[in-house]
Amino acid sequence: MAELNDRFTDQQDDEKRRAPNSLLSFSAMLDGEATEQDIEQLLQMDSAELATQAEGFHLIQQVMHKEADMSVGLEGHFMERVRAGIDAEDDADLNVNNMDSKVLNFTAPVKVDSTFDIETNATHAKRTDWRMMLSGMAVAASVTFVIMVGSNQLLAPNSSSAHLLAEVRLPAQQNALAPLDKLDRDVLQIDDVRLQHYLRQHAEQAAMTVGQGMIPMARVVSYPIKE
């Protein structure tokens, strides 16, 4: 019996030891001071309780700041998404490293296409999403812990109101990059050599037609010189 009591006491101590460690790591993450080791430890100890707490912290953060970019979405678990984000980031870094190892001396100029631009930025937004979530939480970490005391309802698991809040997502970033009415056309590039040639031809001919001597050719100097 005493042995059993000793074992039970050891188990309780072990849990006590583990819980503060995980909270320390979690706190460090919120403060933006987490090391890779802290994050790995947190992810390995991804208990349902910890995840629920994290989700709750994040929802509070959303309510406080109303930031669309930081919304969580309904699907998936918060910590799982952090894990997925880190994995995706690692994959991206790996790809970049692979490119570096190939030593690309020259990158051909790529014509900027509005659709391509949007996709690129969307990808970029996806890649940075988890970082924004973490950094956003870190900035308001101390405030969040204070709010927790009086915000238990928001922290309650399966809170429908919390999930509704998490549903808000505005596509403002994409619209700012490319208005919808501009999506069906390209933007001509000034570094197009053929276009530069035509611009110079036009300036020279304009000088002959508008009766202002060679003054219209002043525009020629504002065109780039590439041959």
Partner: peptide
């Protein structure tokens, strides 16, 4: 083939 492109200077 090339769709309409505009450059505003």
């Amino acid at each position: 083939a090339k769709k309409l492109s505009i450059l505003d200077m």
